[in-house]
Write a protein that binds this DNA or RNA. Structure first.
Length: 235
DNA sequence: GCGACAG
DNA sequence: ATCTTGTCGC
């Protein structure tokens, strides 16, 4: 059977992740203020990904700017290699955002909480050279999650479980780049007034879905032809 | 062979 | 991620 992407080599990708893991700055600047936050999330349909970037002013509680990108996926989803599939989509959606105007980037997915300590948030953080945090709804394999919610992997702390506010679904927070785990945890906690995702990610999540639906509805104007989609069979 | 396994 | 009906709860 023909591989989906002959040029993608998982062994080399794993090596690249190990290199990236060594480049992470998990200290950051201690006096940093995180006011303008960029949230990155994506939804999927067949071979398409729709990524949305939401720039949010946390102090004013207002959205500053939104941008998006609809792309054809080049890499299949394989656990542990998600970054190679969706980092390009994230970066494309953030193309029109002025990064000098961004204090922190929230990525839907893991950061250092990853088998090779280099999840998609690490990848985005290193490419953009910005403080980045991974926010995931499900855990990856961990060696231990202690009573204070710290996630352990390879003998070190790689993430922290966010259980607030009360009754909210747990989120797994980890460093992407240029920030400490404690700062990452506190920022996400402040950005989560309700039970859902932190505000910028919540907005990006809902928008990416709506934009994908929009793209499908107007598929007769070229999306199906351009991307090779097929309508679902009526049953 | 079976289970694990972000989005 | 996405596919999906009814159902429990604020």
């Amino acid at each position: 059977m023909k591989a989906l992407m002959p040029s993608f080599n998982y062994e080399k990708a794993a090596k690249a992740q190990e290199i990236m893991a060594n480049l992470i700055d998990d200290v950051g600047l201690s006096d940093r203020k995180y006011e303008k936050i960029l949230g990155l999330d994506a939804s999927y349909l067949n071979d398409l990904s729709c990524s949305v970037a939401v720039l949010y002013n946390a102090r004013k509680g207002k959205v500053i700017k939104v941008s998006s990108a609809l792309l054809k996926n080049k890499v299949p989803y394989v656990p542990g290699f998600l970054g190679f599939r969706e980092a390009s989509a994230f970066l494309a959606s953030a193309q029109e955002i002025d990064l000098s105007d961004v204090d922190l980037i929230l990525v839907d997915g893991h950061g250092r909480f990853h088998p090779r300590l280099a999840g998609s948030a690490v990848q985005v953080g290193l490419v953009l050279g910005k403080p980045t945090v991974g926010v995931a709804k499900k855990p990856l394999k961990a060696e231990k999650i202690d009573e204070r919610g710290y996630v352990w992997l390879k003998g070190r702390v790689v993430g922290k479980v966010l259980n607030e506010p009360k009754g909210a679904k747990r989120l797994y927070i980890s460093v992407g780049n240029e920030i400490s785990l404690e700062d990452a945890f506190e920022v996400v906690k402040l950005l989560r007034p309700g039970k859902g995702l932190p505000v910028p990610l919540n907005i990006a999540d809902r928008l990416s879905r709506r934009l994908m639906e929009y793209a499908l509805r107007r598929s007769e104007k070229g999306y199906i032809r351009r991307f090779g989609l097929r309508r679902k069979q009526a049953s």
